[in-house]
Design a binder for these strands. Structure first.
Lengths: 94, 94
DNA sequence: GTAAAGTAGTTTATAAAATAAACCAAAATT
DNA sequence: AATTTTGGTTTATTTTATAAACTACTTTAC
């Protein structure tokens, strides 16, 4: 009847992050923060979760003298997102 | 960019309940429990929340000697569901 | 007829999640 | 050189979801 919804993706902020990364392939912390309109703390926590699940890769470097956190979606992440969307349809199909 | 997702609907069980009620117009507790594969406790709590939000109407009566809890979606509930689905699309659009 | 099991739930407790607040180090600004 | 800003992280608090325990019957089996 209803398919399971991956709890890691069934979260407004994490879903927004994944949605962005899916179309952009790569984005930095500040960009994600702006686009998702989230607080830095919340974003930091959610990026960690997605990273630990292997849905995204997080790289820390420097842009000039400032820290730069760059995120990329992984294959696993893309698959998970697609599965999530597919499952969602069992709930919202007309 | 991303639309807000009504937190009341952004929950697997509550979304499933609403999805069922949208197509059935009326359903009793046991039916919902089976179809959503939820525990009675969880279902009871989530029905209360939907009811308090005015998204569903809950009526308690008796079927013979046994209690019967019947749920119906309200206009407000239908609207909220439609809005939720619409908002969702900002996240999952290809 | 009464003990045990089942039905239809509710209430309370616990675990997990989301969010907010506080904090930190370095850089840029005044 | 003191203050503010940038780019975050860590910790604390609040909110949710879920599970466990309980209630009030009813039905079935002895």
């Amino acid at each position: 009847m209803f398919k399971e919804l991956d709890p890691l993706l069934h979260s407004q902020l994490r879903l927004a992050i994944m949605s962005l990364l899916l179309s952009l392939d790569s984005a930095d912390f500040t960009f994600l923060k702006e686009k998702t309109d989230s607080t830095a703390g919340n974003l930091s926590v959610q990026l960690d979760k997605l990273s630990e699940a292997g849905y995204i890769n997080v790289e820390k470097s420097f842009k000039g003298k400032k820290p730069l956190t760059t995120c990329k979606i992984t294959k696993k992440g893309i698959k998970a997102f697609e599965d999530y969307v597919h499952s969602l349809k069992s709930y919202i199909k007309p």
